[in-house]
Design a protein around this nucleic acid. Structure first.
Lengths: 128, 128
DNA sequence: GTACATTTAATGCAGATGCAATCGCTGCCC
DNA sequence: GGGCAGCGATTGCATCTGCATTAAATGTAC
């Protein structure tokens, strides 16, 4: 075992990451839920979809970009679809694949939620 | 760290935090569970308890140190107690309070798990 | 001393997550 | 074409989490 860093520094850094993350994520989760009815994961999905020009992506692509497991992503997308924020469509060339499209409502929701997102980040991330 | 000014930088930094955290936490969670039968939260509790000289702390103190909600902490400590890794005792002077003691088994478990913990941190944290 | 507010921890409940199993589809090899 | 391994996404299940509520103890005002 080659300890490139001292153990103390490693643990200290981990604690710092743990604290920062939970601080920011906690506030984000609450604010997004209260003000926009979105889970943090749901927002992150909408956010990623709105970054793409075509506004549609396969589940796989999304999963690769994100921290969610396949099943969690599947359910999160299902929730978004249920609320009309995205639509799912079979991929014609490979009918196993599923495309996720951002709907106009989804884009609007994401745009609104982005305000909250940035606000919370500005408030809790820079001090971390 | 210097304060972040542009929105883009803020979001970028948040994404980075999100990615780092989930990368490390995911590996930690799996490794601690498989090799020591501990949740990440459970390990963090044991870890904090073993840092104190007296090896006992009120629930409140623990909660203040950690990212867990009060209820999550209560249940995590209950699980640890069920497995004999800590004991709970009423505080005599204020019978609402509860002291959490690290048991010898708990200390042993934490010592063993710390190896895994450091190993995973060394492997996944330094690149983050 | 009695009534009321506050504090501390535990618990009911609903929601999100991950793992493992599953189902449908594709591609390959014969 | 037929059989079979592998891929992509969904679903069953158990667990962990947070919020709101509850129960018990303490503190305060009168």
């Amino acid at each position: 075992m080659p300890p490139v860093r001292s153990e103390g520094a490693l643990v200290k850094r981990w604690r710092s990451l743990l604290t920062s993350y939970n601080e920011v994520a906690g506030h984000l989760e609450r604010a997004l839920q209260e003000q926009h009815g979105l889970t943090l994961s749901e927002f992150e999905i909408l956010d990623r979809l709105s970054e793409q020009e075509c506004e549609k992506r396969r589940m796989q692509d999304l999963a690769a970009d994100m921290y969610l497991s396949q099943s969690a992503l599947s359910r999160a997308v299902a929730r978004l679809e249920k609320h009309g924020l995205v639509t799912r469509a079979m991929c014609e060339t490979d009918r196993r694949g599923v495309f996720v499209h951002l709907s106009p409502e989804g884009l609007a929701r994401r745009t609104a939620a982005r305000e909250t997102h940035l606000h919370i980040l500005a408030k809790h991330l820079q001090l971390a």
